[in-house]
Nucleic acid binder design. Structure first.
Lengths: 225, 225
DNA sequence: AATTTATTGTCAGGTTTCTGACAATAAATT
DNA sequence: AATTTATTGTCAGAAACCTGACAATAAATT
């Protein structure tokens, strides 16, 4: 496999699909690419937000911490998504923590340069706009889940989304690897670790899923809806 | 008091402050103004979203309904705020219901015209951008409240926000009028009507607030933080 | 003013889900 | 391979809050 240059990443990015060659090279000049290991923190709450981040590989977790130390995950960012979008929405500071949960390749570009590019690139502008709209919808769906669904339903519908977003279809159902710790699922679904354990084993019991600490396999595909 | 023309409203709108006279008149031509009575529905879920709404007077409630009929309020829109912003974020359909909860004066403009205006009006563009960022923050704060706060805390912090947003400062504390039904507060805070009742009476007990069905008064101002 | 309707007040279960505690297992380290 | 550490499995008890039921009060209607 050929070495992956930053331009290679940018070109394979649907955010930039259809962008002129010239703009592409401009983006390449103006952005930086970095590899971040698991557990690295990309930004903290209260840190100034003047950068936007584009994730090419890996996973990043966007979360919040309460004063008493409790934690909740707002969203999991996967390849092809941007984060830190608050910077282009005029937010001075980050409210969230962004932490790498699977070794990541991240492109960064200063909000000023990005906005400059958006100004004379309507296609990019439109894509960002749609992305923001999508983000807004996602968070509203999160609220809806918290209000209308019970713990078991929240856990199940998260698992479904997780598999659809990050899994691969195989002969014997869907497969995601690596899997998450129960505590991580609990943080995402606003439940307790023990409840996650219970739901997971119930699903395994009825042969809907099979899992170890390393992978999650959905055996009964119709469960995915 | 002079009759309120639409132009009068537009000019007193901070969304358009600093806008050129010419653009102002263009906006006036392109938008419509309407008065909506309490309980009128501005839009339903699944309705096409091709309009943006600017609220000058009154209150509008943005909410969601589950299949089983349960309801939750995502936000209360007050004078000076826009809603239906999904239209300019590329969302085909509304996910929410927008319902007038206090007789309202609403300006509407088609998303196409609005985007046209944004294109050659950087100041307007910036304001909308910031507004969207603010909306995103608000919803994230909603998630945070649901996860970290218990029912009592959610109700209290909603009351504080409500008073700060919609109340007037008086010699003897803050005053909001009209007040909300307990069920409405329950819908906003994702609690039960009876719990709202309990919290409200507890606060009245300790002389923090005083309320009837018509108004809410905060007697102990330090409670507001 | 009398009557009807809507909203608030109160209370007793009942449910859901969390907490804490510890054992069992798997993974990582030595 | 043996030992240490991290994660998962299991359970009992507790807390928070909801549900349902009905009475009391306020508002709206006649």
């Amino acid at each position: 496999m050929a070495e992956k240059t930053k331009l290679w990443y940018l070109e394979n990015f649907n955010l930039f699909s259809g962008m002129a060659q010239q703009s592409m090279e401009e983006m390449n000049r103006k952005s930086k690419m970095k590899t971040n290991k698991k557990k690295e923190i990309i930004y903290f709450p209260d840190e100034r937000s003047d950068t936007i981040y584009i994730l090419k590989e890996g996973k990043v977790k966007i979360s919040r911490i309460a004063e008493d130390g409790r934690t909740t995950t707002m969203q999991l960012i996967g390849p092809g998504e941007i984060f830190g979008e608050g910077s282009i929405l005029g937010q001075e500071k980050h409210e969230n923590i962004a932490e790498v949960v699977e070794d990541a390749v991240i492109c960064t570009i200063s909000k000023d340069m990005f906005q400059e590019m958006m100004k004379d690139n309507p296609a990019l502008n439109l894509k960002i706009t749609k992305f923001i709209g999508f983000r807004l919808q996602t968070i509203q769906a999160h609220v809806e889940d918290l209000v209308f669904k019970n713990a078991q339903e929240r856990i199940e519908s998260f698992l479904k989304r997780y598999v659809k977003n990050f899994g691969k279809q195989m002969v014997d159902g869907w497969m995601v690897r690596p899997f998450l710790k129960h505590q991580e699922i609990a943080d995402i679904t606003a439940t307790a670790r023990q409840t996650v354990n219970m739901v997971l084993n119930e699903l395994a019991e009825q042969d809907t899923i099979k899992y170890t600490r390393r992978f999650l396999q959905v055996k009964n595909t119709s469960w995915l809806n």
